Simulated scan of single mutants.
Amino acid sequence: MSPRSRTGELEQAVLETLWSAGAPSSGREVHEKLADRDLAYTTVMTVLDRLVAKDLVVRERDGRAFRYAPRLTRAAMTAELMHEALEVTGADRDQALVSFVGEASADDLAALRRALADLG
């Protein structure tokens, strides 16, 4: 799998913070939102830099600092991860999809049916 498809727990928490913000955030703002984790500011900045390198977050200059935003919505990132997972299955792609659907909850199956109906 590509490096983008794997995020650590702290990287995921930073992404969640950026998605919740709804607008580009400074490193300081992200750090403040994660205050309950007792993280150093430099740790948050390192994670943001890692997410930029993985192309999961975009960075734009704002004066002397930067503002960060997720490159994709939660839904789009989930879809991208699913596509990446299917790409590595090769010939087992059909079986992987059957297995996924076989283990899906009733709510997930209903959502999948709705999505397929909307496409067709």
Rank of each mutant, 00 (worst) to 15 (best):
D118W: 07
D62S: 15
K54D: 02
A110S: 12
A91V: 08
L112G: 08
L97R: 06
D55C: 03
T17F: 04
E84N: 09
S2F: 14
W19I: 14
A69P: 05
D107Q: 14
M1S: 12
G90I: 07
A104R: 02
V14Y: 03
E80Q: 10
A91I: 05
S20L: 14
A35N: 03
A110G: 06
R114S: 06
E29C: 08
A69H: 03
E32K: 13
T7A: 10
S2G: 07
R74G: 08
A79H: 13
A91H: 06
V14P: 03
T89I: 10
L18N: 04
L97T: 05
L56Y: 03
V58Q: 03
T78N: 12
D118A: 14
V98T: 05
E16V: 08
L116R: 05
G102M: 07
G120S: 12
L112I: 15
M1V: 11
R113L: 07
T46M: 14
R28S: 06
R64G: 01
D36I: 09
L10M: 12
A69E: 07
G102F: 09
G8Q: 09
S105M: 07
E32R: 15
R59M: 02
R50H: 05
A104G: 10
R74Y: 15
D36M: 03
S105D: 11
P70F: 07
M82D: 11
L86V: 07
L18P: 04
G27T: 00
L15N: 01
R114G: 10
V52D: 02
S105A: 08
F66I: 00
A91S: 06
T42A: 13
R28A: 11
T46C: 09
A65I: 01
R67T: 03
A115E: 05
T78Y: 13
A110V: 05
R37W: 07
A13V: 03
E84R: 12
D107K: 14
V47S: 02
L10P: 09
Q12R: 10
A69Q: 10
A23Q: 09
S25C: 14
G90N: 07
D49M: 00
A53R: 03
A110C: 04
A117H: 12
R59L: 02
A110Q: 13
S26L: 00
E11C: 07
S2I: 11
T17S: 12
M77H: 15
A23L: 08
A96I: 08
A53W: 01
V47N: 00
V52K: 02
A110H: 13
F100Y: 11
G90A: 09
V57P: 00
L48Y: 01
M45L: 14
L109Q: 11
